[in-house]
Amino acid sequence: MEVNTQTIIQKREISFAKKGIGWGLLAGASWGLDAVLMGMALALAPFTNTLSLFAAPLVASCLHDGFSGTWLFIKNVISGKWREYARTLKTRPGKLILVAAIMGGPIGMSNSMLAIHFAGAAYAVAITAAYPAIGAILGAIFLKEKIGLRVWSGILLAILGSFVVAYVPPSGESHPHFYLGIGLAVIATIGWALEGVISTYGMDLVDSDIAIGIREITSFSVSFCVILPFVGAVAYQILFASFSTSVVWYIAVIGLIGGISQLSWYRAMNMTGVARAMGLNVTYALWAVFFGWLLSDLQITSTLITGAVLICLGTILTIGNPKQLVSIRGK
């Protein structure tokens, strides 16, 4: 191979790795914005219904995924990939994407909501913030991803930072089902980590844009047909009531931002590996503070600044040297 050709190839592969990092950063930033906007939407009727504490977030999450799935389908129609949905679903890697979708969407999200209800936000958030570390461990074991000490330190710092940012001191309320809540938080954490590893394994062959399209539609369908019936009739009351208010349009727009975020996250996992993509995605906690300050009345405290600094340091260490990302996995 000539030196000139070799240089061009190397540049092209480093550029691919850098793009993967870019997608990971975009995933974190847009997820932070998504979280802030969802919080604002949940303060509007009909999500203020007090008949069930966790019905409103579950309904909002179901609607959000439905809209995200629709936007992603439109994007894939425009880019000429829509025929790939049916072709992919007939394959085993395509079916693995369905499993990953159920792990991350209904299992991850629903158990996280229930964990907050049963054990309180302080403990639930502390446990679920660890999902990138579990994802990195599973990625190293099952996908043989090469993760150096620097990247490990970065992931752990980013997790610590997101924990500091999201931490809510225990309110002193009694939680009669506290240990059930802790167990559900652990299940949510494992669900999100497994989603990353299983979908990345599937995306070795499945186009990441199709994988996330399938993920969002599956998440919506399972939430609508399986999770909401568990909550009861109140969930469907809230869901259908939302269509007669302007809140449904807000969620449609938030679904677009969520769709961009999820698309970026899946592309990052495919291009840079699970460990780094999750380490970058967890920066959403930092972005949520920024957008919360920009769009709502969030006050910046010294705790938030400490968390933000930890996340930034963690992100810099996680990104590392893109030259090392040309080959993600060990042989």
Binding site: N4, Q6, E13, F16, A17, D204, L325, S327, I328, R329
Partner: peptide, 22 residues
């Protein structure tokens, strides 16, 4: 490139055409 980065395929040789295409 995606298949190569996850280790499913390997490159054997590369040439640059007169039109600067790999």
């Amino acid at each position: 490139i995606s298949l190569k980065s996850v280790g499913l395929i390997d490159s054997i040789s590369v040439t640059l055409t007169d039109h600067n295409k790999l």
